[in-house]
Design a protein around this nucleic acid. Structure first.
Lengths: 423, 423
DNA sequence: ATGTGGGCAAACAGCCGACAA
DNA sequence: TTGTCGGCTGTTTGCCCACAT
C-alpha cells in the first residue's frame, strides 16, 4: 500500500501534517475511486517545475484524449528531503468504457476533508528567524495547540517535542516570560530554523493531533526562481515522457505513475470523477455568469473571490481541442486580484445561479446516462466534432443522445441516481 | 552558441574548470562532429539518477535502434547550482544514411584533451573541514599552482581570489607559517567550506590558468544515496521520455537534447563516431584476449587496470539486441578491482594485440567502405540478423559485403582513407 | 498582543605554534 | 611533510527584559 522504493522515504508520512502543509484547498482522491486525469494540466506542472514552456516541436499524441478516466490504485504522500515540499505519487489505470459506466461507489462521493482542526500556522517574522532570539508564539495559538504550562513554576516552562514530515524529532523549550508575558520557543528553535533554511516570510505549522502528538510542518514562501531545472532529462523529453506514458497507458489500459506537486503550480490535474461529472454535466454555466471561487489565505485558511465568466473556449485548440481544462475565461471583481489566473476549470468555480432551474419541468429521476444505447463517456470525450463545441458557450457540452434529460441541472448528490451508491 | 534559458545559468562556464571537475577520463565531442548516441546508455544514467531500474512494463520502441549516428550541434557545460555537480547539455540530430557516410572532418579526428596542466586536487581531511582551523595546502601543490609569496614579509602571506564554476569569487588568506613552516589558507576558507557543504573526503581543485586566474572547483565524494529522486516525473515516465524523444528525433531527423552527467554514473553514452568506428570495425577482439583500461585515481589522475575478455554478448538481448553497448564481459586482474564494472564497451578498452595483424596480406589502402554497393552504416546497425551476431565472438561484427578488406586491423588515423579528412 | 533592540554571558569560530606520524 | 591538538582571543549565539506599536 505504501510501498516506496526510493531511498529517502521508507514509510508513510503523517497524513494530517501532509494535508496541513499542502493547504486547505488540496485534497487527494480516495484510493480505489475513479478520477479524471488531464495530461494538459500535468504538462503545466512539468512546465512550471522545469521553468520551461512546452516546445512546439514536441510531437502530438493524437490518440491521447485531453482527459482520461482512470482508477486511482495508489496514493502515497511524500515530502522532498531537501525542502520539505509536499507532493503525492499516484498510480492510475485508464478504464475501459464499461468500467467508466459503473455506478459510483460511496467512496467516490465522500468529500473527505483531511484538514486538521487543532493547529496553527504562523508566518515567520525577522525576529523569529534571526539568531538573536527565539520564536514568538501567538498567545491564542499557544493556548489552543500546546499542552498547558504549569503556572506554579517561575517562569512556567516545558519541553516540547515535535515531529516533522520525515518523522524527525525537534525539541524546543517552551517558556512563558517577558514583560508583558508571552509564549516563546527558545532553546532548539534556531537549530530548526537553520536546518529547514527558514527565512522571514516562510511559515510554520504546529498541529496537536488526536494521539497527543505535536506535529510540525513548514511552508516556504513562494520565492520566485527557486525551482531548479533538473539535470536528469531535458524538459522536452520530460514533456514527451508524460505524454507518451499516458498515451501508452491509455492504449493498453495499463497503470502509470505521476507526481502531483500541489504547491509547485496551481494545476490540480487529477480530480474525482464525481466532481467532474457534477460540474461538467450537471451545472449550467454561460458567458456573463457570476461565480465564486475559493483561494487560500496567508494564514492557511480560505476565502472566496468573486468574478464573472467572460468566455468559454479551448485553452489550446491546436494541441488539446475540446478539453475542459481551464476552458472558462474569467474576470475578477477585486483589482487586487490582478495576478489571479485568467482561466479556470468548471469544477473550480461555484456558479451563482440566479435564474430558475426548471425544478419540475422534467422528471427528477433520470435514466442512467451511460446505459447501452447512449454514447459512452469515452465516445463523448473522444468523438466530439469541432462544431459540437459551439454548444459549449450557452449550453452544456453533451453527447448527441438524450440531450433534454441530461441538460437538467444537477440537483444534489442524494437526489440523483447518477451518483447513487452501488449496493 | 551558449544560449541557456534556465534561470540559474546565464553564461558559459569555464571550460578548464569544468573538465577538471569532470575528471581526466571525461571528454566532450567537438561541436559539429558526428557522434554515436546510445539510448541504452542514456537509460542507464537516468536509472542511476532516479535510483530506479528500468521497469519491464516500459514499452519497446522497435524503430529505435540501439545506436543513433547524430550530428552534435551544441554542447554547453553546466554545473548544478546547489551541488556544483558538472553536467553537459548536448543537442543531437540523427543523420540520414548519406550524411552518415560522409568522410571524416579534421575536427572529428582530433582528440582534444582539455585537462588543465597547472592544477592540484586535494581530498579534504577532517582538519581541513573542521571549523577549528583552515586548509593545509600541500607544499608542492602550493609552490606549483599559487603565485609565489613575498618571503621578505614576516610571516609571508597574500590574498588569493579564486573563481568557481558559477563565476563567484572566493577570497582566501594564504599564509606560510607554523613550525615546521607550511602553506595554509585561513581567513575565508570556512565560509567556502560551509557554502559548498564540503565534508572530509570531498575534494577541491585549484587551477592556475593561462590568464593568470585562479580557478577553484569541488568534487563531492561518492556518498551513496545522495541522489534525490525527482518529484517532477516518475522514473518510468522519464525512461519513456528519453526513448520516445530519441525515437521521434530518429524518425523525423530532428534535433533533441540530452543531459550528460559524467560523475552521476559511469555511462558515457555519446561518443565520437571516429572512436566508435575505430574500435568496432578496426580492432580485433576475441574471448580470452587481454586488455587494459583507464580508470581515474583518487588524486584525479589516471591509471591502467588489466583484465581478460570472458564473453562477448548482448547486455540486454530482449530490449537491445545487437547492441555494442557494454557487449564485452570481462574479468579484472586485481582482486581489489572487485567493484569494477563487469561489462565494458569496445571503445573503452585497449586490447593487447599479441598475435600478428596481417600487416601485408591485404593492400593497405582500402576502398571507401560506405561507397554505393556496400551496406551503409545504417544497414549494418539496423539490419543485422541474429545469426550474424555469432561472428562477434571470434571475428569482428561486419556488414555482409567486403568482409576480407574490412577485417583488416585499423592501422592508424593517418594511414586509413576511412578517416581521411575531407578537403 | 507581539515585533524589535540593548544588555549580557556562554559558546563557538578561528588563528597560533607544538607535537607526532 | 602534514594531520590534529591545546591555548588563546574575538565574534556570534542566544536568553533576558524594556519599550514601542
Amino acid at each position: 500500500m505504501c510501498a516506496w522504493h526510493f531511498s529517502g522515504e521508507q514509510r508513510c508520512l503523517n497524513s494530517e501534517l501532509w494535508h496541513a502543509c499542502a493547504g486547505p484547498l488540496v485534497s487527494l482522491p480516495a484510493v480505489g475511486s475513479r478520477v479524471i486525469y488531464f495530461p494538459q494540466g500535468h504538462s503545466e506542472q512539468v512546465a512550471a517545475s522545469t521553468n520551461k514552456e512546452v516546445d512546439s516541436q514536441i510531437p502530438n499524441y493524437p490518440n491521447l484524449p485531453p482527459q482520461l478516466i482512470c482508477q486511482l490504485h495508489n496514493v502515497t504522500m511524500h515530502a522532498d528531503a531537501e525542502t520539505d515540499e509536499v507532493y503525492a505519487q499516484m498510480t492510475l489505470q485508464p478504464l475501459s468504457p464499461e468500467e467508466q459506466k459503473e455506478p459510483f461507489l460511496p467512496i467516490e462521493l465522500g468529500a473527505a476533508s483531511k484538514q486538521p482542526t487543532n493547529y496553527f500556522c504562523k508566518t515567520l517574522t525577522a525576529s523569529d528567524t534571526s539568531t538573536h532570539g527565539g520564536f514568538s508564539v501567538p498567545r491564542r495559538s499557544a493556548e489552543k495547540v500546546f499542552p498547558p504550562l504549569d503556572f506554579s513554576l517561575q517562569p512556567p516552562c516545558q519541553e516540547l517535542i515535535a515531529k516533522d514530515l520525515h518523522d524527525n524529532e525537534w525539541k524546543f523549550r517552551h517558556i512563558f516570560r517577558g514583560q508583558p508575558k508571552r509564549h516563546l520557543l527558545t532553546t532548539g528553535w534556531s537549530v530548526f530554523v537553520s536546518a529547514k533554511r527558514l527565512v522571514a516570510g516562510d511559515s510554520v505549522i504546529f498541529i496537536w493531533n488526536d494521539n497527543n502528538q505535536l506535529l510540525l510542518g513548514i511552508r516556504h514562501a513562494n520565492r520566485p526562481q527557486t525551482i531548479m531545472p533538473s539535470s536528469v532529462l531535458s524538459s522536452d523529453s520530460m514533456h514527451i515522457g508524460l505524454l507518451a506514458a499516458a498515451a501508452h497507458a491509455a492504449a493498453t489500459n495499463s497503470r502509470f505513475t505521476i507526481f502531483y506537486n500541489p504547491r509547485a503550480s496551481p494545476s490540480e490535474f487529477i480530480i474525482p470523477l464525481a466532481k467532474y461529472v457534477k460540474s461538467v454535466y450537471h451545472t449550467r454555466v454561460s458567458v456573463g455568469m457570476r461565480f465564486r471561487m475559493l483561494f487560500e489565505t496567508e494564514e492557511s485558511s480560505v476565502r472566496r473571490y468573486m468574478g464573472t465568466i467572460t468566455t468559454i473556449s479551448d485553452l489550446d485548440s491546436v494541441r488539446w481541442p475540446n478539453s475542459h481544462w481551464r476552458s472558462v475565461k474569467v474576470g475578477w471583481d477585486e483589482s487586487t486580484a490582478g495576478e489571479k489566473q485568467p482561466r479556470v476549470s468548471l469544477w473550480e468555480i461555484e456558479p451563482l445561479t440566479t435564474f430558475p432551474m426548471y425544478p419540475t419541468a422534467f422528471p427528477l429521476r433520470l435514466k442512467r446516462p451511460w446505459a447501452s444505447g447512449l454514447p459512452s463517456m469515452h465516445d463523448m470525450f473522444n468523438g466530439v466534432k469541432n462544431d459540437d463545441f459551439s454548444r459549449y458557450s450557452s449550453l452544456m457540452w453533451l453527447g448527441d443522445g438524450d440531450r433534454g434529460a441530461q441538460s437538467l441541472n444537477f440537483q444534489g448528490v442524494g437526489a440523483s441516481p447518477w451518483l447513487q451508491p452501488k449496493m
